[in-house]
């Protein structure tokens, strides 16, 4: 039975991965426009060789206009993906799409990963306290943070820049590191990267913390009327222990289960945030690709983002199996 949960989860994420990959294949073929010609023209502008091989590579990705059977294209496309061949980027010509992504992905993963983790920990922690101290002044935190989470990420970013960078000069306006430094593992460079990352991270944390807080607070309120909390009180346990081990331990489960949805919002929000800060991450690259009609890069980034999100969700789901023993034994988990 124990395997069952993990097998089901693995199967689900494989299905989701297949759906994303297929979506990526179908979208350019369904929508109007002639992306291959645009790409070839761009390639020519940049002085790229317009050899038949390049054209063929793009056609596999974006459709041949009916010359080959769709099925044949699909198989070739899957084969290319498996080999990690995502084509050549025209906006960063002659770099390969995979190289462009490899260069920008770490920035986003560190920024979004860390800020999501911080936001989750603070939000859930505060939510637990607010729920536990229900009926006190802390209740007024709830509407306040909800308004914060209705603020568009990029607008908050603009305001933060206006106040803290332009206004007070505490933080740099944009970028991921001081450009006079050479990227590398030197203390100076890492320090500069952290310094540049504070404002984007603050944007993401402020915008997403309200959701965690409210969800946790509501679950905490529900959990506190459960019998096991009453039993814990009858047992004469200390309040802190009841709050953490009994109420919060149960109340956090839906927040973890709902992680997938929240992560989607955070990723979406951080893409636009990266633009405001000209952050060297994958969101900025996606926009650069869109503005330059760099379809190959666009698709590559979409795939990578999706895979990263699926991977994060898989990890959270596996974690959920660890923190709630019931899931592992239940056969019907959607």
């Amino acid at each position: 039975m124990t395997m069952n949960y993990y097998v089901r989860k693995a199967a689900f994420y494989l299905a989701a991965l297949w759906a994303a990959v297929t979506l990526n294949f179908v979208i350019p073929r369904m929508l109007p426009g002639n992306p291959v010609d645009i790409l070839m023209a761009k390639l020519q502008q940049r002085g790229g060789t317009v050899d038949p091989a390049a054209r063929q590579a793009y056609e596999t990705l974006l459709g041949t206009g009916g010359r080959d059977s769709v099925f044949h294209e699909y198989v070739t496309y899957l084969g290319n993906l498996l080999r990690g061949e995502l084509g050549v980027s025209v906006s960063a010509f002659p770099a390969k799409v995979s190289d462009v992504i490899a260069g920008s992905l770490p920035w986003t993963i560190v920024l979004v990963g860390l800020s999501t983790l911080l936001s989750f920990l603070f939000g859930v922690g505060l939510g637990a306290v607010v729920g536990w101290k229900r009926g006190t002044w802390l209740d007024s935190l709830v509407p306040a943070t909800t308004v914060l989470s209705a603020v568009p990420y990029f607008w908050l970013a603009l305001i933060l820049v206006a106040l803290l960078s332009t206004g007070l000069g505490w933080f740099p306006l944009s970028g991921g590191y001081d450009v006079v430094l050479d990227p590398g593992w030197s203390a100076e460079f890492i320090g500069s990267a952290i310094y540049h990352g504070i404002l984007p991270a603050l944007t993401i944390v402020i915008s997403s913390i309200g959701g965690w807080l409210l969800g946790m607070r509501n679950m905490m309120v529900s959990a506190m009327s459960e019998d096991y909390v009453l039993t814990a009180r009858a047992k004469g346990l200390r309040d802190s222990r009841i709050m953490i081990r009994y109420a919060a331990r149960n109340a956090v489960l839906p927040s973890v289960a709902g992680f997938a949805i929240s992560l989607g919002f955070v990723v979406s929000g951080s893409i636009v945030t990266e633009l405001v800060f000209s952050y060297p991450g994958i969101g900025s690259k996606l926009l650069q690709a869109v503005q330059n009609n760099d379809y190959a890069l666009m698709q590559g980034i979409f795939l990578v983002i999706t895979i990263a999100v699926l991977g994060a969700n898989l990890v959270v789901d596996l974690l959920y199996g660890l923190i709630d023993a019931r899931t592992r034994d239940r056969s019907a988990v959607a």
Partner: peptide, 14 residues
């Protein structure tokens, strides 16, 4: 689980 905005951006881009 498929992130929304990146998908919308890709569609809008095409």
């Amino acid at each position: 689980v498929i992130p929304g905005l990146p998908l919308v951006i890709v569609i809008a881009g095409f």
